[in-house]
Design a binder for these strands. Structure first.
Length: 455
DNA sequence: ATCGGAATAT
DNA sequence: CATATTCCGA
């Protein structure tokens, strides 16, 4: 079991500096946050992080292990601190990342030429040519200046979409608003409206997807419930609410106690909410090969164009992601029935933010044999944000026993800071023999994720 | 007035 | 259908 625990800085000064929050979204190489816990073995079967499959199974055994592990974690000296105030910082922050991008500029920009260029150019080339500034002024003029009642349509090329998704992920679904997305995209050929429009569609797609998945998950849960004879300790009809269980007095209920699966991933953290293993890699099949048995119900028809809308992890290596292409050799299938467990740790003294709602972690096995834990909160008010200098430790555990030293790490400064960060991701190499992976950040909101990576 | 987002138009 | 534009509430 891998446990990542946030440790409060001794001084605790970082506590209130919301602006120090950072989101690590592009850098999962591990070095940034924690060095990789490198075990010789590769784990061969980590699933994609698709929540659905994770919720599928939940052997009582796992629970038992989990709970014990949890206790251990609780005992950690690092934990004990309330995290109130976190939310405020997170939700209130409006620090603009990087800054000074003039939106009005984008507003004026004409997308026509760029779109054309993009369309004409191989996506690779496009990717490497972020500067859309070179649109021909002529075309630009023609596009709008003349009279252009209607602006030239923007061609949402894969690259543009990738940027878009990236931005959305980085911001977190809750903070992903056109203007900010536009900033993060670093493209000046789009207008806020372009983005808004795309975002609209994006959400729509996600909505449908999540609805589907929720349905499936629900079904699975029930199925499991029966299968285990209710042996499980906790079976929430709605897995997404699990995090609140065991939490201390819940103050003012969130505006939306439970936000319906309104958006696609998100990535959660929202995150990506639904982090899926790139489908294009797994073939045209909309469902991963390892996907747990589907409910007897309709085999859920694949979305119109999955590959397009699922670029969630389609980042290039320049962002710290390993290109999918490299993942070929790495088995990305999960165990027969991967387990995604998530629970609110009953840690005394720790007051998780009431509105915090975590989502089962999305874990992605990267080609480099790294296991990526992605804690993507999906609450009305995000979430997980660590601050520079925050300390935490990582520890692998198996069957309630530590199998590695607790490595204390410190969140490095200099990491891109985004007050609205919602994702905190850690990469560790984990031998597949480890049964479960637990990810805990007490400092943040006191929650823990557990996922079976090897049955 | 600005912004985000849903509705509606093209 | 995809995107742009409009409408409207915050």
């Amino acid at each position: 079991m891998l446990a990542v625990e946030a440790l409060r800085g001794s001084n605790g000064e970082e506590r209130n500096g919301s602006s120090d929050n950072f989101s690590i979204d592009g850098d999962f190489t591990g070095e940034t946050l924690l060095e990789d816990i490198n075990f010789s073995d590769l784990f061969a079967g980590i699933d994609d992080g698709d929540i659905l499959p994770g919720l599928e199974l939940d052997p009582a055994e796992t629970f038992a292990e989990f709970s014990v592990g949890w206790e251990e974690a609780s005992g950690s000296p690092a934990v004990a601190e309330a995290t109130d105030g976190m939310l405020g910082g997170v939700t209130q922050d409006t620090v603009v990342l990087g800054g000074e991008k003039d939106l009005s500029h984008g507003e004026e920009a004409t997308s026509e030429t760029t779109a054309e260029d993009a369309a004409a150019m191989p996506s690779e080339a496009r990717s490497s040519t972020p500067d859309k500034g070179q649109k021909s002024s002529a075309a630009a003029a023609a596009a709008k200046g003349s009279h252009g009642k209607r602006k030239a349509k923007v061609d949402w090329t894969p690259d543009l979409h990738r940027r878009f998704v990236q931005a959305v992920e980085q911001l977190g679904i809750d903070k992903a608003v056109p203007s900010r997305i536009l900033e993060l995209m670093g493209v000046d050929c789009l207008t806020r409206h372009n983005v808004a429009s795309h975002l609209q569609k994006y959400r729509s797609h996600r909505k449908h997807l999540l609805a589907r998945e929720a349905e499936a998950a629900s079904w699975s849960q029930r199925r499991q419930m029966y299968a285990t004879g209710m042996g499980v300790k906790r079976v929430d009809v709605n897995p997404w609410l699990a995090s609140t269980i065991g939490f201390l007095p819940s103050p003012p209920p969130p505006v939306q106690p439970f936000r319906p699966l309104h958006v696609w991933g998100h990535p959660t953290p929202e995150a990506p909410v639904v982090h899926m293993w790139p489908r294009h890699l797994s073939g045209r099949s909309p469902t991963p090969p390892w996907a747990p048995p589907q409910p007897p119900q309709p085999p859920l028809p694949p979305p119109p164009d999955p590959s397009y809308w699922h670029h969630l992890y389609q980042r290039g290596s320049e962002e710290g992601w390993v290109p999918h292409a490299m993942a070929k050799g790495a088995p990305c299938f999960p165990q027969p029935l991967p387990i995604v467990r998530f629970a609110a740790p009953p840690v005394p003294g720790v007051v998780p933010h009431p509105t915090y709602r975590a989502v089962p972690p999305a874990m992605t096995k990267h080609p480099s044999s790294q296991l990526q834990l992605d804690a993507s909160p999906v609450s009305s008010s995000p979430s997980i944000s660590l601050k520079h200098s925050s300390r935490f430790h990582v520890q692998l555990q198996k069957h309630n026993r530590n199998v590695s030293d607790a490595n204390e790490r410190t969140v490095p400064s200099g990491v891109t800071s985004d007050s609205t960060s919602i994702n905190y991701q850690v990469c560790c190499e984990i031998p597949m023999r480890f049964m479960m992976v637990s990810f805990s950040f007490y400092q943040i909101s006191c929650f823990s994720f557990t996922k079976c990576v090897d049955s």
